[in-house]
């Protein structure tokens, strides 16, 4: 089980949360301007890193807010958590 540090509610067990996949790939501002390859890259391709991984979580059964966690995907160690843009 993971103990996930919600920036607003503090550390809670992982069954209160929903995993939201990798962080740091914003939706393209003009999707219609992309080639098929660029759109596929945004939609499907993932870094799927072995090691340090920045990812999105939602505190579904708590404050219901999204935030970013950095975790090691081999050891499951939580390396840090933060909000989008750094402000709560």
């Amino acid at each position: 089980m993971l103990l996930i540090p919600c920036p607003w509610c503090g550390p809670r067990e992982d069954d209160e949360f929903t995993f939201g996949g990798e962080a740091d790939f914003p939706r393209p501002a003009e999707p219609e301007a992309l080639t098929d390859e660029q759109w596929a890259d945004y939609l499907f391709m993932r870094d799927n890193r072995r090691g340090r991984h920045r990812e999105q979580w939602c505190h579904t059964a708590g404050c219901r807010r999204w935030f970013i966690v950095e975790r090691d995907t081999v050891t499951n160690e939580i390396l840090g958590a933060g909000t989008y843009g750094g402000s709560p």
Binding site: M1, L2, D14, D15, F19, G21, E55, R71, T73, T75
Partner: peptide
């Protein structure tokens, strides 16, 4: 397990 992970234990839940 829902989160991406290469851990070979898995979540007890």
């Amino acid at each position: 397990d829902a989160p991406v992970s290469y851990d070979l234990n898995g979540n007890f839940r």
